[in-house]
Nucleic acid binder design. Structure first.
Lengths: 230, 230
DNA sequence: TTATTATTGTCACAAAATGAGACAATGAAT
DNA sequence: ATTCATTGTCTCATTTTGTGACAATAATAA
């Protein structure tokens, strides 16, 4: 983590979406002894593609390769430059302010969102943080810098992309019911969807393969399981 | 233009769209004595918002304030790092390689597109360039670095945004005919649109104000002029 | 065994949006 | 007055979407 290995003034932040218990969640880190919460992020190595840097960071936090990833905005206001916060984080982690002085400089941050299958992940804190945990998108702790803005814009972009990109594929397990898929859409949009219209629309896309029924011992008709495979 | 005034490793590029003669055009710069063509761009001052830096750059190139601007992607592949090209540009412009050594470093570039009224602009070259001129989007010269990719992505984003944002407003003069507006849409989409459907759709949006007719001395019915004002 | 209950898959119809063409109105040239 | 190209609007067909109805389950209760 030496200055000469990394590009200066440029960072990235990731909004990692997962879906569990009917709610949309994201990963948030908490720094040692500071009460500071932040998005997972990192820096770009001098010989590394920006996109690869983000994948490297996500691999460290989630253990996953091949994550669905979209870049959505680059945040570059001067108002996001608050060196005293970074200084507190470094001091609380017992890091040398001299060696890591470059972290106190201003950073422009390229923001990405990722979609992952909640159940496949065991979130890992990094050296500076106590925890890396899921938070309900409606109940986030206060975040440092402009990270609340980043989350808001990530969610807005996800909503805008909902019709154009196959969002459900990445947030659900390989097999799921139509109702599972509908709940993902409802969590992202923040509103209820009409069941029959949703079902008709999803089936008309011809991207779902129907499998066996799912018997859960409930007192009603068992739903079919679907997958996105061909 | 001293290193200490600017953030390092980060730049911006602008795809400036204009509309003239029924075709979509963008601004391209040509560097002194090099045969190199590139998008207008620049660097971010240490105390300056990223968005403001882009507006500053556009003001220098076009003379305009209050330009319609959208950030659309940040390009950060290592493959775009070609210091020999920048060195040639500096040498051809008789700039000191020592003083401007920082320009030979790797840059991650935040890309924006702008929409402007073609007739309001007299493009201005900068100190390093011979010209800053309009080129038809279908007939661009070969561009340095990954600037051709940037243009392609700008155009794709513009198409995707066509229904959601008021594109025509920014590419046309204050008053225009329905046919003018349709030609803008056709130039962006790269395909013909059905006249009656387009007219019905535009009018149903209730964002157009109808004004007097435009008599051009042609042997047919004179069209109404419209504006986006309220 | 036979109701009861909640949910699912599908259909039918209404409403809205879009595609496609018809046609009269118009401004100038012949 | 006639012709011509273009415009504004209308109508009808087609497609998409909104809305509810309804039969088909899979377990539970009677």
């Amino acid at each position: 983590m030496d200055q000469k290995d990394f590009l200066t003034n440029i960072a990235f932040d990731s909004v990692v979406f997962g879906f569990s218990g009917g709610a949309l969640k994201i990963l948030i880190m908490e720094y040692h002894n500071t009460g500071f919460f932040a998005l997972p992020g990192g820096f770009v190595q001098r010989n590394e593609n920006l996109n690869d840097a983000v994948r490297r960071g996500l691999k460290e936090r989630t253990g996953l390769d091949n994550i669905y990833l979209e870049q959505f905005y680059t945040f570059g206001d001067t108002a996001r430059y608050k060196p005293e916060i970074m200084q507190t984080i470094l001091e609380s982690g017992n890091y040398s302010l001299e060696k890591y002085e470059w972290l106190l400089d201003r950073f422009i941050s390229v923001a990405y969102y990722a979609l992952i299958n909640y159940k496949e992940v065991v979130p890992q804190p990094d050296a500076l943080s106590d925890s890396c945990e899921w938070y309900d998108i409606d109940a986030l702790p206060p975040l440092i810098f402009d990270h609340a803005d980043i989350v808001a814009k990530a969610l807005q972009t996800l909503r805008d992309n909902l019709d154009r990109k196959l969002v459900g594929m990445n947030l659900l397990p390989a097999r799921f019911t139509m109702n599972d898929l509908q709940k993902v859409y409802e969590a992202i949009l923040g509103e209820k969807i009409r069941r029959t219209t949703f079902q008709r629309k999803m089936l008309s896309l011809e991207i779902l393969k129907r499998h066996e029924k799912q018997y859960l011992g409930k007192a009603h008709k068992a739903p079919y399981l679907y997958s996105f495979e061909d």
